[in-house]
């Protein structure tokens, strides 16, 4: 799941997770950069680098790059003592902190590991679906390109071949796809169109869907809006305020529909709409409501 910041990526990711879990698929939602947005939605305490069941068939993990690195190195060296020796050495601490993109690489490495049917970690659960709440737009592209960049830098050797393997996972159009979350406003629509283009042509990943999130209901017809406009002139107090709120809603809903048709014209992937939810805070109930609307 990707898209511009603040468009509701996590909520849609969780909704998608609930939907898949409801269909009997063992699903996990991964947060990156140590974010805990998904656990917040479930009002759950922070999950950290653990696979925690949030609802039936739905797990969540927050991928911490340092933990991923420890796990990865242990899988490579197989001997805990050797790993610890390496982690205590200055050269390693230095390289791990200074090497650009390494955090992203080990994060993607962990996602790859979660997606394996033959899990590398001990007693690892098999998942039918791994949902990644990816970084926003600009960073999202860089994030997905990290394996390729590393493969190019390393040229040969173990890092090269493993980075290539990760890149193959991302560009495997049969098993991996992205969904873009968008809002019905001018700039998010422009950005989603540009993002779809970059995902397809620069990263080479499939774009399966664009979710137009937060769409207002069309509560009033044009004729009714005219009636309300008259009311704002003749009335005072609450009735005037209520009529005015209705007019605002009407004009927003209309400009949103215009943005929706712009989006449909500008992206190739199918566009699905999700309603704006008039809830003060979006929690798990909101995600469940959206889950029903996802297909």
């Amino acid at each position: 799941m990707t898209g511009k910041g603040g468009v509701g990526k996590t909520t849609v990711a969780v909704a998608l997770g609930l939907r898949a879990a409801g269909e009997g698929k063992r699903t996990i939602v991964c947060e990156v950069s140590s974010q805990e947005n998904a656990s917040h939605i479930f009002d759950h305490s922070e999950v950290g680098f653990h696979e925690v069941e949030m609802a039936e068939n739905l797990w969540s993990i927050s991928i911490d790059p340092d933990e991923s690195m420890r796990e990865y190195v242990l899988l490579q060296l197989k001997v805990r003592a050797m790993r610890d020796l390496l982690f205590r050495s200055r050269i390693f601490t230095y390289l791990a902190a200074a090497t650009p993109g390494l955090k992203e690489l080990v994060t993607i490495g962990k996602i790859w590991e979660l997606a394996q049917l033959d899990r590398k970690v001990k007693a690892g659960r098999k998942y039918d679906l791994v949902i990644v709440d990816a970084p926003a737009t600009g960073h999202g592209i860089g994030f997905l390109q990290t394996p390729r960049t590393f493969a190019a830098i390393a040229r040969v050797g173990p890092i090269h071949s493993q980075a290539q393997q990760l890149d193959r996972l991302i560009t495997d159009q049969e098993h991996t796809g992205t969904a873009i979350v968008c809002l019905p406003e001018e700039m998010p629509v422009n950005e989603s169109a540009a993002l779809e283009h970059d995902l397809r042509s620069e990263v080479g990943v499939a774009v399966d869907r664009v979710y137009m999130n937060g769409l207002y209901p069309e509560r009033f017809s044009k004729q009714e809006a005219e009636q309300l406009a008259k009311l704002t002139e003749s009335e005072n107090g609450l009735a005037r305020s209520a009529a005015r709120a209705g007019l605002s809603e009407h004009s927003r809903a209309r400009s949103q529909r215009a943005q929706l048709s712009r989006l449909r014209r500008r992206v190739e992937a199918p566009v699905k709409t999700l309603p704006f939810l008039f809830e003060p805070e979006l929690g798990v109930e909101a995600a469940r409501q959206l889950a029903k609307r996802l297909h």
Partner: peptide, 16 residues
């Protein structure tokens, strides 16, 4: 450091 380095080379390869 020498030991750490040889371990590191095993993981990432010498060229890198």
């Amino acid at each position: 450091a020498t030991v750490a380095l040889s371990v590191l080379k095993r993981i990432v390869g010498f060229d890198l």
